[in-house]
């Protein structure tokens, strides 16, 4: 599904990713853990195509295509979804308007008929039920005045609606209370299917108790320094990053 090789990327002229290599197969859930500044968010932005994140070396192949050659919206239409660590507030743009534009853009790309307002609202209601978001919340301007937990629920609503084949979750669990964490983990687990791959970026073990990863990577200094199974996350919880030789990076 996703094959990253020797990825180097700079932000503001500073190299943050320094030869990252990673492969995620369809159906797998990979977790990436790592200390602050190790390049976790840079990786998610590079994969989603944010400007200002310049790839200087390496390749990213997604479903057999060169992901880095695609515009951000093309990546999304091809099934890449980034759940933002800091979802962006968009004043004046109703959530429903935004979601319908996104959903129909993706349908159109797939050669499917766009949904009209009624059909779309019906579908949206079903998805809202999955994440526990009421109508008045989705009618409000996107993320405007939302609490941290509400923003993350809204990210999960988008993910449930857009049904990506590669979901990248950038610290979606940070700052969540236990209820919101449950909603997030349920939605990630619901998306877990043989044809979907996931990259879960997190600081903490607690999400990984609820979303059990197939493979855990430790990112430090812009590279993967250790890879293991779910027990690696537990080991990190005990020893901290210092205990697993991240200093070597």
């Amino acid at each position: 599904m996703l094959k990253i090789e020797n990825l180097h990327a700079t932000v503001d002229g500073k190299e943050v990713l320094k030869g990252l290599t990673l492969e995620i197969k369809a159906g797998e859930v990979h977790a990436i853990m790592g200390p602050n500044g190790s390049g976790k968010s840079t990786l998610s932005y590079v994969l989603a195509g944010r400007s200002g994140y310049e790839v200087t070396q390496g390749t990213v192949i997604y479903k057999g295509k060169d992901l880095l050659a695609m515009a951000p919206e093309e990546r999304a239409r091809e099934g890449v979804f980034l759940a933002f660590q800091y979802p962006v507030e968009i004043p004046g743009v109703a959530g429903t308007t935004f979601l319908k534009a996104a959903y129909n853009a993706i349908r159109k790309h797939r050669g499917e008929k766009e949904l009209d307002a009624m059909q779309f609202l019906k579908l949206l209601r079903e998805k809202q039920a999955l994440v526990g978001m009421k109508d008045d919340m989705v009618r409000r301007a996107v993320n405007s005045g939302f609490s941290g937990g509400e923003k993350k629920r809204f990210e999960m609503l988008q993910m449930a609606l857009l049904e990506p084949s590669l979901a990248i979750l950038d610290e979606t669990d940070s700052g969540l209370d236990i209820d919101a964490l449950r909603v997030v983990s349920e939605n990630i687990n619901r998306l877990r299917k043989p044809d979907v791959a996931m990259l879960v970026i997190t600081h903490y073990q607690r999400l990984l108790d609820l979303v059990v990863p197939d493979i855990v990577h430790v990112l430090a200094g812009g590279r993967i320094v250790k890879t293991g199974d779910k027990s690696l996350a537990l080991e990190l919880e005990r020893t901290g990053y210092a205990g697993i030789g991240t200093q070597a990076a």
Partner: peptide, 27 residues
């Protein structure tokens, strides 16, 4: 940041700009 958020959901840049401008004035 707002433009990228919309693009990251599959919305093309022209539509994204239009949505943002409409939102700016709708307020």
């Amino acid at each position: 940041a707002e433009l990228f958020y919309l693009q990251a959901r599959g919305i093309d840049p022209d539509t994204a700009r239009r949505l943002l401008v409409s939102g700016f004035l709708a307020t």
